[in-house]
């Protein structure tokens, strides 16, 4: 069992938990992920590591409940435990293996969207510890959904933009990036984008035009997270890659986002049914009128 030492809400629907997992905390690096399973019947949920403390032996995860298992996970409080918590999985961010002198010469921009803001944090924090202050754009739909502003402010130059303009800048993250480059005299030679696939797709479209090499962190459907099932396969250039062992970070210019987004819908029907069953109890959710599930 893996004890939850701290649990809080970062916004209306985004949860943060600090979990006791010494073996993961001892070996993890920014960019890697864990898989958590809250209870016996639960699904294995892959989550990018959002912070770690090697001395205390803790891992911080941030997630948004969307399916049955994550909704149940969100109900856990400090003092409760995850039944399973395994990692670190995937490869660390390439930044970790780049010599610090080389990194210092680079102008790096991080672009974070929604719940994807959280996994950007360990990378930005890591750079800050090495004496490098990166620019970071956080994008959210509206003011209440902006998360971790305080933590980020301490480790980077922060730009916040909301779709509805309810907080700081108005518009998508791509608008903000364009403004920084076109109107505010900024230039970048490395970009890391983490957020919804649709956001990463449009960021890459723009950074391609500006010729800024861009790394994206992919979060496709997974089961085991060790390369065994192949559910997380992605088309990257002319190769098929497994996000769990070859990623989760890839060259954004090479990722086929349209295919990846289609693959994300694979279990929508089954998950929708399970969610309805959770919300409404054992009523009929087959939708066919024939299976007898409503009797």
């Amino acid at each position: 069992m893996y004890k939850i030492l701290d649990a809080d809400k970062l916004s209306e629907n985004i949860y943060r938990m600090v979990v006791d997992a010494p073996m993961v905390a001892r070996h993890c690096e920014p960019g890697q992920f864990i898989i958590a399973k809250a209870y016996e019947e639960g699904e294995r949920i892959p989550l990018t590591i959002c912070d770690y403390d090697r001395e205390k032996g803790t891992i911080t995860i941030v997630f948004q409940p969307i399916g049955v298992s994550t909704i149940e996970m969100a109900k856990l409080k400090a003092g409760d435990s995850f039944e399973d918590f395994v990692g670190p999985l995937g490869r660390p961010s390439d930044l970790i293996d780049t010599p610090v002198e080389e990194l210092k010469k680079k102008k790096i921009i991080f672009i974070a969207g929604g719940v994807g803001t959280a996994p950007v944090y360990p990378q930005v924090k890591w750079l800050h510890e090495k004496g490098i202050t990166a620019d970071v754009i956080i994008g959210a739909k509206t003011k209440d959904l902006v998360i971790m502003e305080k933590e980020f402010k301490e480790v980077c130059n922060l730009y916040i933009t909301t779709d509805d303009g309810s907080y700081q800048r108005k518009g998508m993250v791509t608008q903000c990036l364009q403004d920084l480059i076109e109107k505010e005299g900024k230039s970048y030679d490395h970009c890391v984008a983490i957020g919804p696939m649709i956001m990463m797709k449009f960021v890459v479209k723009m950074t391609k035009a500006y010729n800024i090499p861009t790394i994206v962190s992919m979060n496709p459907i997974m089961v085991d997270g060790t390369g065994m099932c192949g559910a997380c396969r992605l088309q990257v250039g002319d190769e098929i890659k497994f996000a769990c062992v070859d990623g989760p970070e890839f060259d954004g210019f090479l990722v086929d986002f349209d295919q990846a987004m289609k693959r994300m819908t694979m279990y929508k029907t089954e998950e929708g049914r399970a969610l309805l069953a959770l919300q409404e109890g054992k009523t009929h959710h087959g939708g066919c009128g024939m299976c007898g599930g409503d009797q």
Partner: peptide, 20 residues
């Protein structure tokens, strides 16, 4: 790691490895 055939359409929704 499961092997695939590397034929067109193999990443379509509804194609699984037996392992998955």
């Amino acid at each position: 790691l499961p092997m695939f055939m590397h034929i067109p359409g193999e990443n379509a929704n509804g194609v699984f490895s037996a392992n998955e």
